[in-house]
Design a protein around this nucleic acid. Structure first.
Lengths: 347, 347
DNA sequence: CCGCGTAATGCTCGATTTGAGTATAAGAGG
DNA sequence: CCTCTTATACTCAAATCGAGCATTACGCGG
């Protein structure tokens, strides 16, 4: 958790503010990047631009400008200009600043500091359940992408992903390639990240392992060596710079957060059925859930309330439409703690 | 959670790198700040410098330098130079960057971006249980401070803090001072942040409410108006710039994190008794815990293991000394989730 | 109108976990 | 040996969980 491994990237990023001279001779640029997430009951989606400097897909990003009062405002305005997508829920993710996160400004190297954000958007009503528009409007290059395109090993909804065995094989040899304490360390990291039962939150940890083991395209690009496709079985689509690492951070954070904050509802339409909710959670977390217990949880936690309406679109028996019950935020301290009241003394 | 309220501060900060010109005319500086936490069974402590520009206490901080390969390395080196304190566990907290977080460089305003970190340090063996050295060595101005000095309303270990009634009174009038939807909003925010039962994690939310309501010294300083002490009943010691906000962020994060990650152990000596552990958790979270249930939790979760030794220092019957059981990280997905395995289908 | 297929919803039930105690053990100090 | 203080064991009802089975209600193809 503490500290991300260094992710090198000499790829130039477009649209940055012109860099400033650092008193000590190096240059510095500050960027804002956004992981913009939407979801249907089938697919978790992220907004990507097709215009990476090297043609790779990229996250919407732009420079911090002085007229932006706060970082978040800067981000919102950039995103809206770039993708014509209005942002609702926004939270700061992480600030990436390794020295080797370099871009070039007219040939001069520039240290790139990027403050990354996670944003959740609600699909237009008719889109929930049907595919989202591929083109969210605005910049012609912005498109919604199923995020498992970048992380095929993260989707366990239909059972163990086909990519896993090959990846585990390669990881095992990567472990064997080391010796002594380093080997034990690798062993432990792999064991934790790929343990059964599957831990859906370790998205970043898995990405970093695969990166270090040379199973991620970006790794070879960052090293300046050609990537031999054969070496990377089903390792997903590459992205510009370290955007895939940022995306991994976002997915892990979101998967964790839905378990103790009612953030899923930021992705749901105003009214929905319990199965739609369940499928959306499943899409995000990449695992299947037990239907009856899921509804029991949602209902007895008071997360939703009746709208009184009925959906006919189910394909089976019609379902009640419910909506998010805002009051729950005032009632539960934060659904799902450790240290329950039983550990506390009445005071 | 999404977005921090703007925290203004025209106080100059010392020891920043010289600012760089921003293409658009404004200047920018990047700082690293550290909330360094230690704990005894009695007191949660934070390392503070006594040398704020206006004499206020400040968090250790310094500029990002180009020779630092990563932000975290830069932070560590700064802290070690400034306080002679070696850092163990370090995690990035938040990046603060409101435009009005300004410092001045020879008269010119500079936008200050600060990447804040949370660090946990283990006291020297003999210090756990006895007071920490006031002077951690290194810079003569660094001193450990009980963090409740800055947040008197956060310590409920001895029952409702004396400061609370006055603060709630003042908050109630602040709520009444608004009307319409703004009033309802304030009402809800206060209701949530100060609800019974007390929610120990809402440290930042409470600080921001008190700040907005004018009950925090920094507010008046930031507005450039004299703070009438009478208006601020028991509102704690002020800090330089927005350091108290950063500290609030850190405390809230730490209080939340101990509930699902074994981070407390980063603050414990190698061997300790269960009561020492309990008291440390209580000191951090500011609430008292049920002794028997606390031990049951710790033991049956497998968080600790016997050392075989016995402590004589208890004041009562001698206690077993235990140590953190590292293996727990490999066993439990993350002690304390929602969505237990019962919601998952075997796949 | 019947029988499927597909979902929605209801309900059960043993196994754990929790919340809140009570009871007993083992030192130190007088 | 009495008291104070803390450690540690054990209890027990209530709530929650994990895993199912059973029933209901549409649309649709005959």
């Amino acid at each position: 958790m503490a500290g991300l491994a260094a992710g090198a990237a000499e790829t130039a990023r477009s649209r940055r503010a012109s860099p400033r001279e650092n008193g000590r001779g190096a240059s510095l640029s500050i960027g804002l990047s956004a992981v913009i997430v939407a979801a249907t009951p089938d697919e978790p989606r992220v907004l990507a631009l097709r215009n990476g400097a090297d043609g790779a897909e990229a996250l919407p990003s732009g420079p911090l400008e002085s007229e932006h009062r706060t970082l978040e405002i800067g981000l919102r305005s950039w995103v809206e200009r770039q993708t014509r997508q209005r942002l609702g829920y926004v939270e700061q993710l992480y600030t990436f600043g390794d020295r080797d996160r370099i871009e070039t400004d007219r040939g001069a190297p520039v240290r790139a500091l990027t403050v990354a954000y996670l944003a959740l958007v609600r699909p237009a009503p008719r889109e929930h359940g049907s595919p989202l528009e591929a083109r969210p409007g605005g910049s012609a290059e912005a498109a919604w992408q199923n995020w498992y395109r970048y992380f095929p090993w993260e989707d366990w909804r239909a059972g163990r992903p086909a990519a896993i065995p090959a990846l585990e094989d390669r990881l095992a040899s990567w472990v064997r390639a080391a010796s002594g304490p380093e080997r034990r360390l690798r062993e432990e990291r792999v064991g934790l990240a790929f343990a059964r039962p599957w831990n859906d939150e370790l998205v970043l940890e898995r990405y970093e392992l695969l990166y270090e083991a040379g199973l991620i395209g970006e790794r070879w690009r960052d090293l300046g060596r050609p990537s031999s496709e054969a070496e990377m079985p089903a390792s997903g689509t590459a992205m510009a710079a370290d955007h895939r690492r940022i995306l991994a951070t976002a997915i892990g954070r979101l998967r964790g957060k839905i378990k103790y904050r009612p953030v899923v509802f930021e992705l749901m339409p105003p009214a929905f059925t319990l199965l739609q909710l369940q499928r959306t959670v499943e899409a995000l977390s990449g695992v299947r859930l037990h239907k009856q217990n899921f509804r029991r949880l949602v209902e007895q936690q008071g997360l939703v309330e009746e709208t009184g309406e009925i959906s006919g679109e189910t394909g089976g028996r019609p379902a009640r439409l419910v909506r998010f019950r805002r009051a729950v935020v005032l009632e539960r301290p934060a659904p799902g703690l450790r240290l329950r009241t039983g550990h506390r003394v009445p005071a």
